Amino acid sequence: MSHNVLLIGGHGKIAQLLTPLLLARSWNVTSMIRTADQTAAIEKLGQGQPGKLNVLISSVEDVKSEGDAQKILEQVKPDWVVWSAGAGGRGGAERTNAIDRDAAISFTKASIHTPSVKKFLTVSYISSRRNKPSWWTDKDWTSAQKVNNEILPTYFKAKVAADEVLTVLAKERFDEEAEKGVPENERFAGISLRPGTLSDEKAGGIIIGKIGSQGKISRATVAEAIRAVLETEGARGWIDLLDGQEDVSEGVKRVVKDGVDSVEDEDFEAMKKNAAKL
Rank of each mutant, 00 (worst) to 15 (best):
R130Y: 08
K13V: 13
D62E: 14
A223H: 09
G91L: 14
E233V: 14
G196R: 11
G204M: 06
T30E: 08
I208W: 08
A161C: 06
V82I: 13
V160W: 00
E66V: 06
F120Q: 08
V165K: 03
P133W: 04
L6T: 09
R34P: 02
K64C: 06
P183Q: 10
D240M: 00
D200N: 15
I112A: 01
T137G: 03
V229N: 03
T137K: 08
L22S: 01
R219H: 09
T221L: 09
K139I: 09
D102H: 04
R173I: 12
P115I: 15
A144E: 12
P115G: 09
S116Q: 13
I207K: 12
G89W: 03
T197D: 15
F188Y: 11
E201K: 06
Q75D: 07
H3S: 12
I33K: 00
L6K: 12
F107E: 01
V260Q: 05
S134W: 05
A98N: 11
A85T: 15
E179D: 13
G48S: 12
K139M: 10
V60Q: 05
K272N: 12
V229E: 02
A203T: 11
T122H: 01
G244F: 06
K132S: 08
V123Y: 10
F174T: 13
V82P: 01
T96N: 13
D243A: 12
I126Y: 01
H3N: 06
Q16I: 06
L278T: 07
A161L: 09
A189R: 02
V165F: 02
T137W: 03
K139T: 10
F188P: 00
R90W: 00
S84M: 14
I206E: 02
A228M: 11
K132V: 11
I99L: 13
G92C: 13
L121V: 05
E186F: 02
A69D: 04
T35Y: 12
Q49H: 11
K180G: 11
I33Q: 03
K146I: 04
P153F: 15
P133K: 03
E176A: 10
R173K: 13
V182R: 05
E179S: 12
H11D: 13
G215N: 01
A178E: 14
D200M: 08
G12N: 06
R227N: 14
T114C: 05
F174W: 15
N97F: 14
N97H: 09
V29A: 06
S218K: 01
P183V: 07
E231M: 06
E164F: 01
W135T: 07
L53P: 06
D102F: 02
I151A: 08
G48L: 10
G88Q: 13
G209V: 06
K71H: 14
W238T: 01
G205L: 11
A85H: 12
D138H: 15
D175V: 07
V29R: 05
T137D: 02
S2A: 05
I126N: 01
R90V: 01
S199D: 15
E61N: 14
A170V: 02
K139A: 14
T96D: 10
I206C: 07
V81Q: 02
A235T: 11
K77Y: 05
I151N: 03
E186A: 05
Q75L: 06
E201Q: 07
V256F: 13
G48W: 10
I191K: 11
W136A: 01
D68M: 12
V255N: 02
Q75I: 07
D175A: 08
A103I: 13
L152H: 02
S262H: 07
K71S: 14
H3A: 10
L7S: 02
